[in-house]
Design a protein around this nucleic acid. Structure first.
Lengths: 180, 180
DNA sequence: CCCCTATGTTACCGGTCGGTAACATTTTAG
DNA sequence: CTAAAATGTTACCGACCGGTAACATAGGGG
């Protein structure tokens, strides 16, 4: 879905349906034969991002089976890589949240459910890793992940990514030492 | 500026000039006698927020003069208080960033300069507090602060605020113990 | 070849938006 | 009280947007 690039770069409300059609190498009419409204198009785009992110988590789980610390560390590394490849315009989901204030917007619901699932997953990982206060640690992780995107605009994405990795490693190793 | 509430709640692009005028208890014509365009209005609103935030920093400095740790801790507490008083719709500046993709938009420049100043200030505080790697610690602080806003939507603002305070306290006390 | 389906083209609709002109009204000051 | 400055009212403009109707074209399978 090439339209997603436009949404991300110019903002959801800043790109018209005509431009979306052009980016998809088709035209408005054909577009409306597959999506009944722009909002549904937005929602489908968001669904794609969410699905991709959740697939990432599954891959992570498959790669580090039974190793929650490894999953958390690899997760921070992947995030850092994404940060490095991103300039100026923050997270697609974060921006979408800002651009869709209506709490009943379907896309917003999709995002919110995803965020909840993701956070529960991080809590579960922290619990499995034996962190003394899993809710606390998980909130830390999520806070830093979310923050890295917006913070990167004033610090530089490279550095912020590396620092994210550093602190996750530090927390994990600290915890390993404690539980050993 | 009552228009700011609208910008924050409905999104900058989601609120028309007419609604802004009504919120300011005046009308469109009078509005355009004071602001030459909607963009300038937005910029002025952003300038107000930024000025307010920087005044907060000055107050913090006056209240905890020569005590950088105290400033950082109080800062996290004030942020937590703001988080507690906020529901669903994240940070005004963060949202504005998402809604104004044009890098040359004056409001965007104002925000970016502010973020840079703020971050430098945090680095300075970390240096003064004797953190071994001030850039690293400052990035952590900023990351968590920024992240708390978006993360709060899936965790609850109360909890995220308290955890922010906890971790800042923890870092500061850890550092005090180390330097003592 | 021919029919049927998918895609493309053009023109249009109603609505909203940012912004302005012209004029009426109120407020303020001397 | 009066003149000038500020504010309000209405109506409008052009541009854009989401969405649709009608029709033209292409293409693929029997």
């Amino acid at each position: 879905m090439a339209a997603g690039d436009l949404f991300h770069k110019q903002g959801i409300r800043g790109v018209g349906v005509e431009a979306i059609a052009e980016a998809a190498q088709t035209n408005k009419m054909t577009l409306y034969r597959y999506f009944e409204s722009k909002d549904e198009l937005i929602t489908e785009w968001v669904r794609g991002i969410v699905a991709h992110k959740e697939q990432d988590w599954k891959d992570l789980n498959a790669k580090h089976r039974g190793d929650p610390e490894g999953q958390l560390q690899d997760w921070s590394r992947r995030t850092a890589a994404k940060l490095r490849a991103m300039e100026e315009r923050g997270s697609a989901l974060g921006n979408a949240f800002a651009e869709l204030p209506d709490p009943n917007h379907p896309a917003r619901r999709v995002m919110k459910e995803h965020k909840l699932r993701e956070h529960k997953r991080v809590v579960r990982l922290c619990k499995a890793a034996g962190f003394p206060d899993p809710a606390f640690s998980a909130n830390l992780f999520t806070m830093m992940l979310e923050g890295a995107h917006s913070c990167g605009t004033c610090v530089g994405m490279r550095q912020i990514g590396e620092h994210l990795v550093q602190v996750v490693d530090l927390m994990v190793e600290n915890n390993r030492r404690r539980t050993a």
